[in-house]
Computed example of a mutant assay.
Amino acid sequence: MRAHITQPVDRTDDIETRLRGLLRDVLAIPQDRVDAFEAATPLFGALPELDSMAVAGLLTEMEDRFGILIDDDDIDGDTFETFGSLADFARIKVGA
């Protein structure tokens, strides 16, 4: 995994674009596949790359790339249900 400079997300940044890059890098999913994700695209349970161990890595990388802190209480079963629910979670955490 590459090292990233921790920077808070500017509210004008496109959260979905940054989230696609994160999923691509952490889960090793090809860019064209990630680009096809829509809000309703199922994630956890539908992507073989996204297992419970990958969730932990994804959350850590989200903290680093988005400059946020994620508490255990922040995560529930719906967070990783779809690409849209994960994007909504990221928006809430960064205050966008």
Rank of each mutant, 00 (worst) to 15 (best):
M1T: 07
A3K: 06
A3H: 04
H4A: 07
H4G: 01
I5P: 00
I5N: 03
T6D: 03
Q7F: 04
Q7D: 03
P8Q: 08
P8F: 04
P8T: 07
V9Y: 01
D10S: 11
R11W: 00
R11P: 05
R11T: 02
T12I: 08
D14C: 10
I15T: 14
I15Y: 04
E16L: 03
E16I: 01
R18V: 07
L19W: 07
R20E: 10
G21E: 15
G21V: 01
L22E: 05
L22C: 07
V26F: 07
V26K: 06
V26I: 15
L27R: 10
L27K: 11
I29K: 08
I29Q: 10
P30I: 08
Q31C: 07
D32M: 14
D32Q: 15
D32E: 15
R33V: 15
R33H: 14
V34W: 13
V34P: 12
V34D: 12
D35H: 12
D35V: 10
D35E: 15
F37R: 14
F37I: 11
E38M: 10
E38S: 15
A39V: 04
A39T: 08
A39C: 01
A40R: 13
A40G: 13
T41I: 05
T41G: 05
P42M: 06
P42E: 03
L43A: 08
L43H: 06
F44W: 10
F44N: 09
G45Q: 04
A46T: 09
L47F: 09
L47V: 09
P48N: 09
E49H: 12
D51M: 03
S52T: 10
M53F: 11
V55Y: 02
V55D: 04
V55K: 10
G57A: 06
L58M: 09
L58C: 01
L58I: 01
L59V: 12
L59A: 06
L59F: 02
L59Q: 07
T60N: 14
E63I: 00
E63L: 00
E63C: 00
D64N: 14
D64H: 12
D64C: 08
R65Y: 03
F66D: 05
G67H: 03
G67C: 03
I68S: 02
I68C: 02
L69G: 09
L69T: 14
L69C: 05
I70Y: 00
I70N: 01
I70R: 01
D71S: 14
D71N: 13
D72A: 15
D73V: 13
I75H: 06
I75S: 08
I75K: 05
D78M: 10
D78K: 12
T79P: 14
T79W: 11
T79S: 09
T82V: 00
T82P: 01
F83G: 09
F83I: 08
F83E: 09
G84C: 04
S85R: 12
S85Q: 07
S85A: 09
S85N: 11
A87W: 05
A87V: 12
A87D: 13
D88R: 13
F89K: 06
A90G: 09
R91G: 03
R91M: 05
K93Y: 01
K93N: 00
V94C: 04
